[in-house]
Write a protein that binds this DNA or RNA. Structure first.
Lengths: 250, 250
DNA sequence: CGTGTGGTTGAACAATGTCAAGCTCTGTGG
DNA sequence: CCACAGAGCTTGACATTGTTCAACCACACG
């Protein structure tokens, strides 16, 4: 478990944020952007495997992912782990803790991750001065809730094969919308991550993924999963896909 | 599946809302209360078994539960149902749909339910004029997210017995905080509801609940579940319990 | 060269699902 | 008052799904 974390002053001003130009995100006004730019206190880099938030901590910060992949998880006392969701560029992390106090889940980097750093004490200023951004924060929380609803349906009621298909289709769709598949085209997770997301053992996960591979829907390769037929995956899972509309991000 | 729904003009003004006096909720300023009172457009009553929201709909309203029990759920095409969470007095429902458009889950009443009616078009006014209430809305969404995180951990990684214990401890703790156990002391759900919440079959749920009953932790009775030892239930599940602090409600 | 991490496999076993039947209420209509 | 129907709970036998254990393999990295 790597731990390296480097803090830097602000590098990219928000006005030139590479994520802003993606069609996936809603456009922001000049004033909103300049406020967000002042809200941002710097950037942070963490290694793959590093822990960004630890369950039980009280972080003074919250972050937006600039680049890289990570995941949120909880564990039981005896070590059983459940991955709750994955985080990708544009995702705000630590909002739950900032608003309610203590962090009740951990967050770990799957790849090297760079993050924009915000301070939780500035949140109230945002609510006071920028209602549209305040609305966006609620939007972001509601979106996460909606995704968790679908995950719950998946783990509770879908078979192992359906679950695996759903998970990979979901990750693929999100990453595609962010144009994340230019270089590697590979989702950077291990089968252990898949198992801990689906609530299955690694062994059974392996056998399940193999079935998807035999049908030509995915290929498992060095450090990750490559999608061959996203549509068929969604079909296997009986999943409609994510909203296609634009979404806000801070 | 009952469908009766009656709309009324406002009966109880928010200043005299019986829920406000519970120690469970944060106190509101006079100004906040008067705004909320204007935000409220009336009250609605629905029968047990009635559907409040249907997946796929675009409701013009959102509601706060005044009294009664209900639950949110999603279904797969072939009818498999997953209950996502339960709703009780003080809970705001329909926020997800109001903010993001279409409803992606359904909500059904478990008992007769009375609701305060709000209009989604008024939401923006709230954000513009009352930052503290805007913050509360994000708080409410973050709280739901946190609860879903715990449910996901439960379904994904706890055994059937642990899951059942967690669910009942959770419902009991929430209802206790709301002083809901004056009359019946019974959680008004069927074993089918428990099964659909835990992601188990009814048969296995029945056998699992029987084990909890044999240990003296619960008693299953006419139309519901009575808790005998809440502490022991939480212990079986290895669950810490909910936050004890005050929370906002609209 | 070792060593470690992640993937693969088969066999034995445990957990959970399915099927089918019966039971106990409660409410309803004759 | 009785007969009946439906909903929800209970139970046992059996099928299926998923877990655990125990290897072994392949590759990357120091």
């Amino acid at each position: 478990m790597g731990k390296a974390a480097a803090m830097h002053g602000q590098r990219t001003p928000c006005q030139q944020c590479p994520l802003r130009s993606l069609p996936h995100f809603r456009e922001f006004g000049r004033e909103e952007l300049s406020f967000i730019s002042s809200f941002k206190k710097g950037e942070m880099l963490v290694d793959a495997g590093a822990t960004v938030f630890l369950e039980g901590s009280h972080s003074a910060h919250l972050f937006t992912i600039l680049s890289g992949w990570g995941f949120r998880y909880k564990t039981l006392e005896d070590g059983r782990r459940q991955i709750l969701n994955y985080v990708m560029p544009g995702d705000l992390i630590g909002l739950q803790g900032s608003i309610m106090g203590e962090m009740q889940h951990s967050t770990e980097a799957l790849s090297p991750v760079s993050l924009c750093v915000f301070e939780r004490t500035d949140l109230m200023t945002l609510y006071n001065s920028h209602p549209s951004l305040a609305f966006d924060l609620t939007w972001i929380a509601a979106r996460e809730e909606r995704i968790l609803d679908e995950h719950l349906l998946s783990i509770g009621r879908r078979s192992a094969l359906e679950r695996a298909a759903y998970l990979i289709a979901y990750l693929h769709q999100r990453a595609s919308a962010l144009h994340l598949f230019n270089g590697s085209k590979v989702i950077p997770i291990t089968q252990q991550h898949v198992a801990d997301t689906l609530g299955l053992s690694v062994v059974h996960t392996n056998k399940t993924l193999k079935k998807l591979a035999e049908r030509g829907l995915i290929v498992w390769q060095e450090r990750g999963c490559a999608v061959r037929d996203a549509k068929a995956l969604a079909d296997v899972a009986g999943w409609d896909g994510l909203d296609s509309g634009k979404r806000p991000f801070i």
